[in-house]
Structures are given as structure tokens and as C-alpha cells.
Nucleic acid binder design. Structure first.
Length: 349
DNA sequence: AACCCGGGGAC
DNA sequence: GTCCCAGGGTT
């Protein structure tokens, strides 16, 4: 038990000297002076950071907090504005749940985030990790965070041979045993910083690791073999066609995708469902011009090859048209933006 | 427990 | 190309 207290104390000492700066983070010296972070900021950053790197999140976090400075502002926002602001960040269910959660916090919690793990866990888009992160970082509660970084650190520190994801309960027990009652918020950020900057997936910088002398993996020399993982399935390739239509007045023919499923709730170019073979499904009865080049894109679990068709459409063409001055490619998910970028080189205006 | 769900950077 | 990322929801 003496050893465990040493571990957290040594990591906090390292964090005091090496904490990375982030727009949502309260630095350790400020925290020691009683400054606490805004729970709204911590919550928003943690939602954005799910499966997403700090570098990618920064500009989105600044944009969201500029557009919606408080959870009340966000709760009052229009759905389509939030989805457009999220475009490009990926995993769009996060944006829908972000808005849902803001509205629940305002309606059921008086606009104040609950501070305990159990209450946070009930909110949309908040799972075990995010509940622990918000309760520890924003409210200094002794909750163990277990993300990809901590899984890697724990599995190396103790040479856990059980492969992920089956090892998660075991890793959670190890992480909980290390979480201190003193400065749990800084400790949570410290152990994740350690995984992100020193205990990296490939070629970890063990020579400068504050836990070097405690690490079983380091002692055995096989730290890079952890964590063990169950092999993943190969990605299939799907095919489809995207129709980029522009009306005589410059407006674009788009469609709002269904709330559930791939790119849910986002704008996109019309077309049939993607499959083993590309299917024609022109959204207007006119002469569509196929382009020589395809759009290629990779999603979480498949590769996609999209053929592009372009056409000029008459003013009486039915459908969801967005005026040229209201159309911004940055409102589109990346694959749809790729389609536009390719099509526009072939369009006259 | 297994599957679905983006996008980008490092290698 | 592969792997990874401050994971959650659904079935």
C-alpha cells in the first residue's frame, strides 16, 4: 500500500512540471489556488475528445464555446446549427447527444451539471468514462478514469496478459486502486497525459517516465507488447453514387440524412444506399454527367468508393435546395465535402 | 459480447 | 496500407 501512495504522488509531481496546456484545462498551479474549471467546458471537451485527438478538438471547442458560451445557450440552439458546427469532427451521434444533454441539464438540473458519477451517467452521451472524467476533473471527486491511455498504462505497469476488451474490468480495478483522494482531478489528467505523451502506443519514452522504476513491463523489457488485443476484422469496400445537382440560380440539391445510422442528421448529396455494387438513383430526371474521378473515403468499418454525377437542374425541380449564398461546404461531413470539391472543378459556376 | 459509428495524424 | 485516439449507444 505504501507503494501505491508513492505512485500517485510521483505522478502528480511530474504533472505539476509537465501538464500540457489545453483551452478547457485549469493548470495545476491555478487549481492549487482554488480555481476550478467550468463543468460546462469540461463536459464539452470530454464529449469532443471521445475517440478524437486533442489537436483535432481544440478549434471545435473554441468555436462551440464562442457560439454557445453557456449550457443554456447551447440548449436554446437550433439542431441544424449544432450539426453544422460539428461537421468534420465525426461520430455525429455525439453532437445529437450533446444537444440532448444540454437540454436535460437545463430542464431537469436547473442549468447546473450534477457532480456525482451516478447522476452524470444518466445523461445522454455520458458513459462510464465521461462520467468519471467530469466528476473528477470538474468536481475533484475520486473517480478512476479508464480511457485508451489508462488502459495502455495499466496493462504495461502490471503486465496484464488478458487481451482487450475483456481486460477492462481488471484494468479498471488497477486504475481505481491508484486513484488518490488528494487532487483526484489533477491525477486523472496526469495519468492520461502520461499515456498520451510518454507511454505511447509505439516506442514509449520509458527513459523519462515518472513511473519507470515501478513498471513491470519496463523491467521485463516487453512493455511495447502491451496492451494485448483481440484481432479485428478486415474492412470491406462498398460502392455508391453521389449526385451533385445545381439549379439554374446556383442553389444545390441536398438531403438531410436520417437521425440514426451513418452520418445521422447531417446534410449529404442524394444517392442510393451504398453496397457491394454502385446503384443508380438519380434524384431528378435529367441528363447526369459522370466524372472520370471517384471519391474515396474510409469509415470506421468500411472503405467507400463513390462515383460522382453532376447536372444543371431546372427551377421547377422538386427537392431540398440550399441557396448558393447559404451553402457552405464546411457544413457537410467530410465525405460529402470531398464529393463537392471534386464536382465543383467540373461545374461552370 | 458484438456491432455500429468519422476523421485525421503518426508510422 | 495499419493503428490509434480522454467511448457511447444499440441489440
Amino acid at each position: 500500500m505504501r507503494d501505491i501512495a508513492d505512485l500517485s504522488a510521483e505522478l502528480l509531481e511530474w504533472y505539476d512540471a509537465n501538464a500540457r496546456e489545453m483551452p478547457w484545462r485549469t493548470a495545476p498551479h491555478a487549481r492549487k489556488n482554488g480555481v476550478m474549471p467550468d463543468p460546462y467546458h469540461i463536459w464539452m471537451s470530454e464529449i469532443m475528445l471521445q475517440q478524437t485527438t486533442v489537436a483535432a478538438v481544440k478549434e471545435y471547442f473554441l468555436k462551440f464555446t464562442r457560439l454557445w458560451p453557456t449550457v443554456q445557450d447551447l440548449a436554446n440552439a437550433a439542431d441544424e446549427d449544432v450539426m453544422a458546427a460539428w461537421a468534420g469532427l465525426g461520430y455525429y451521434a455525439r453532437a445529437r447527444n450533446l444537444l440532448k444533454c444540454a437540454r436535460v441539464v437545463v430542464a431537469d438540473h436547473g442549468g447546473t451539471f450534477p457532480n456525482d458519477h451516478a447522476a452524470l451517467l444518466k445523461l445522454p452521451g455520458i458513459g462510464p468514462y465521461t462520467a468519471a472524467a467530469v466528476s473528477s476533473i470538474a468536481f475533484d471527486q475520486a473517480q478512476a478514469v479508464l480511457d485508451g491511455n489508462v488502459e495502455r498504462v495499466m496493462s504495461r505497469l502490471y503486465r496484464v496478459d488478458t487481451p482487450l476488451p475483456a481486460a477492462k474490468p481488471e484494468l479498471m480495478d488497477l486504475a481505481s486502486a491508484l486513484t488518490p483522494d488528494l487532487r483526484p482531478g489533477d491525477y486523472a489528467q496526469a495519468v492520461m497525459d502520461l499515456g498520451a505523451t510518454i507511454c505511447t502506443p509505439k516506442s514509449p519514452a520509458c527513459g523519462i517516465c515518472p513511473w519507470m522504476k515501478h513498471c513491470d513491463g519496463r523491467k521485463a523489457g516487453d512493455q511495447a507488447d502491451y496492451p494485448k488485443k483481440t484481432p479485428k476484422k478486415p474492412k470491406p469496400t462498398r460502392h455508391g453514387i453521389a449526385y451533385v445537382g445545381q439549379r439554374e440560380d446556383g442553389a444545390f440539391l441536398l438531403e438531410r440524412r436520417p437521425e440514426k445510422g451513418l452520418l445521422g442528421g447531417m446534410l449529404g448529396w442524394p444517392g442510393a444506399e451504398w453496397g457491394d455494387v454502385a446503384q443508380e438513383a438519380p434524384p431528378a430526371d435529367t441528363n447526369w454527367t459522370p466524372l472520370n474521378e471517384d471519391v474515396r473515403h474510409t469509415f470506421t468499418h468500411f472503405h467507400l468508393i463513390l462515383q460522382i454525377r453532376v447536372a444543371q437542374l431546372p427551377m421547377d425541380c422538386p427537392g431540398l435546395f440550399i441557396a448558393k449564398q447559404d451553402f457552405s461546404p464546411s457544413d457537410l461531413p467530410t465525405v460529402m465535402r470531398k464529393c463537392f470539391n471534386l464536382a465543383k472543378t467540373y461545374m461552370s459556376h
